[in-house]
Design a protein around this nucleic acid. Structure first.
Length: 587
RNA sequence: GUCCCUGUAGCGCAAUGGAUAGCGUGCCGGCCUCCGAAGCCGUAGGUGUGGGUUCGAAUCCCACCAGGGACACCA
């Protein structure tokens, strides 16, 4: 937000280097890392090191000298209160009063748009969630849904045009098993509520029956054949029951505030996938081993002339001519770039176990000559496991259902809401409890590196204290509460006439970083950057809140702080929106 | 066997190659007669091991140790 001033100083430093026969190096700025200090900082170690060339020298000493001299050279620079050289670093402290006014004015003028980047004209696609129909929706599925949703929000905020895609697995062996079990033992049944759970239970039941009597495999294969031949009864049953799952998913996405622009279904790509395999065979990329009882494969390493194994071999069609995931993924990618020819990136938010698979698919498409293949990128994430590193799997019964988690988190939050907001209507209380409960579920999945395993346990999932969404929501509510009490317009723009407290400076500091942090999060595809920002904002606000009275303050401090509270509320709110977490008015 | 990821305080996590490695939680002790205590303040606790690169390494490179994962018809 202070690019102009920063650039000015950079120019001066470059000028100094030229005049003093120093090499020209890029100047990298960072925030002054000391508490309560607000400004930018750069070091001269690299410059000092380069200035020696191949000759050995005392870099630390030289950097110190340069920093001193540059500080002297700069003298007074508009926009900065103080410039100092410390141990080879050059620290420039902002004119806090000026910048306070600038930051607060900007936030209040831009409102919900504050922090967003300029439009880029780049179109990006984020594919995420991809749930399996006819199966339960459990906590392990949440990470892709949350990560993808928030990545989409971040990329959009950074200025891009984002297409959100879901790719449900609506066909495959698991669906056939389910259909078999349904047609044989549950024909005509349909529960009134909790359909997703019921669907999952039926799947588990099918698996159990099969485990107990492997002979039943024959019947499954029979259903598969009927499906392949488009037997009306099977197709109709599939269409109907698939829709039950999709309706259930829709309900959950609504509850979680997750939306999609487009659905691609697994079942849409069986045929086009097989056509692509034909094409690969024609182009000599795929090898047909079906005559010897094998499959159609792509010998990637061989095709690429690699000595060491890297991409290995990918099966693109089973020996019985049926399609598998790889077949469909080839066609799906093609479809994405047919529907959206200008896509600059197609992100696949899929768990890390499929890294090799995606490398194979993308490499194969590249070999086939699709220039957009290089625009495809797998965004991997680690799993959500149960304590003891137990993987959640519906067939093992080792799952925590999403419905159960939401219900539990909401009711836990509701207990507190009822005490603290006893006079609110019940409906409002429930809305707040949902916002708090769901926020608490989302936060821990977003606030760590995606290559780290999340271990789910009830106790920490339902802990609403400390580094968690409710902490941030609470800061928002407190800010909101102050502004509600004054019951008047936010005072007009003003420049603080007395020195700001350390808490005020720190709060403005964090608010001002928001635009840069959003760009960083988008560049690195890291929601973690935003959870950190949101948390720091809330913490800075809480510090301010306990140290700086607002309503009881004398003018003009009161007006100044009211504006700051309004700006903080806006910034916190915007950061929560980016995380897909609701900012409640009270809680 | 090959490849990938992880290792930071009892536990869960942060830290554009940069200054004094931060935060939460748990334990203990404080703070509601001041804008909401889902909050605030205080005490204690540290980068798996060994080399290397660099002015500077939790971060980059190599080896080792420990844990997890992927490697031909599952998705």
């Amino acid at each position: 937000m202070f690019e102009v001033e920063q650039k000015h100083v950079e120019d001066l430093i470059h000028q100094y280097c030229q005049e003093n026969d120093l090499p020209d190096v890029e100047i990298k700025w960072s925030w002054i890392p000391f508490n309560g200090q607000w400004g930018i900082s750069t070091s001269f170690f690299q410059l000092a090191s380069r200035s020696f060339g191949t000759v050995k020298g005392n870099v630390g000493q030289k950097a110190k000298e340069i920093a001193q001299n540059v500080a002297g050279y700069l003298g007074q620079v508009p926009g900065f209160e103080k410039i100092e050289a410390v141990n080879g670093y050059l620290n420039l402290y902002f004119s806090t009063a000026d910048y306070f006014q600038r930051v607060v004015d900007k936030v209040l003028a831009e409102g919900t748009e504050y922090g967003k980047g300029a439009r880029t004209n780049r179109q990006l696609m984020v594919e995420f969630s991809h749930p399996n129909t006819h199966k339960a929706f459990h906590v392990g599925h949440l990470r892709s849904a949350f990560l993808g949703d928030v990545l989409a929000r971040i990329l959009e905020a950074a200025g891009n045009d984002v297409v959100r895609v879901n790719y449900p697995g609506d066909i495959g062996l698991h669906v056939i098993k389910w259909l078999w079990n349904y047609l044989k033992y549950h024909k005509g049944e349909k529960p009134e509520k909790d359909i997703t759970r019921w669907m999952g239970n039926l799947y588990a039941e099918a698996v159990k029956r099969l485990d107990q009597d492997p002979e039943l495999e024959k019947e499954i294969r029979e259903v598969y054949t009927r499906w392949d031949q488009r037997d009306p009864e099977v197709v109709k049953c599939w269409e109907e029951t698939r829709q039950w799952s999709l309706d259930g998913f829709k309900e959950m996405y609504d509850l979680l505030d997750i939306r999609f622009d487009r659905y691609y279904f697994n079942s849409m790509f069986e045929k086009p996938g097989k056509e692509m395999v034909e094409e690969l065979l024609k182009k000599g990329i795929a090898t047909d081993e079906r005559a010897e009882g094998g499959a159609v494969i792509v010998k990637l390493d061989e095709k690429l002339g690699l000595k060491e194994e890297k991409y290995r071999v990918m099966v693109v069609l089973r020996s019985d001519n049926t399609a598998l995931y790889a077949t469909e993924d080839l066609a799906l990618a093609k479809r994405k770039f047919t529907d959206y020819p200008n896509l600059e990136k197609a992100y696949y938010v899929v768990d890390v176990r499929q890294s090799l698979h995606f490398q194979q698919v993308f490499k194969t498409l590249e070999l086939a000559g699709y220039e957009w293949a290089s625009h495809c990128q797998h965004v991997p994430y680690e799993l959500v496991n149960l304590p003891g590193n137990v993987v959640m799997a519906s067939r093992e019964g080792t799952v925590v259902l999403l419905e159960d988690l939401i219900r539990e988190a909401t009711s836990r939050a509701l207990e507190v809401v009822k005490i603290k907001n006893a006079d609110l209507p019940e409906e409002k209380q429930l809305d707040i409890a949902r916002a708090v409960g769901i926020g608490a579920i989302k936060f821990p999945m977003l606030s760590r590196e995606s290559n780290k395993i999340v271990t789910f346990d009830w106790q920490s999932a339902l802990d609403f204290n400390g580094q968690a969404a409710p902490y941030i929501q609470y800061a928002y509510v407190r800010a909101n509460s102050i502004l509600r009490k004054v019951n008047q317009e936010i005072p007009a723009s003003l420049k603080p006439s007395i020195e700001l407290t350390a808490e005020e400076v720190a709060l403005v500091d964090w608010i001002s970083r928001m635009p840069e942090e959003i760009q960083k999060a988008a560049r690195d595809l890291k929601p973690l950057v935003i959870t950190n920002l949101a948390y720091e904002l809330a913490r800075a606000f809480n510090d301010f809140y306990t140290q700086c009275p607002v309503l009881a303050a004398e003018e003009p401090v009161r007006s100044m702080r009211l504006r700051l509270v309004a700006a903080a509320r806006q910034a916190i709110c915007n950061s929560l929106v980016l995380l897909g977490i609701t900012a409640p008015q009270a809680m």
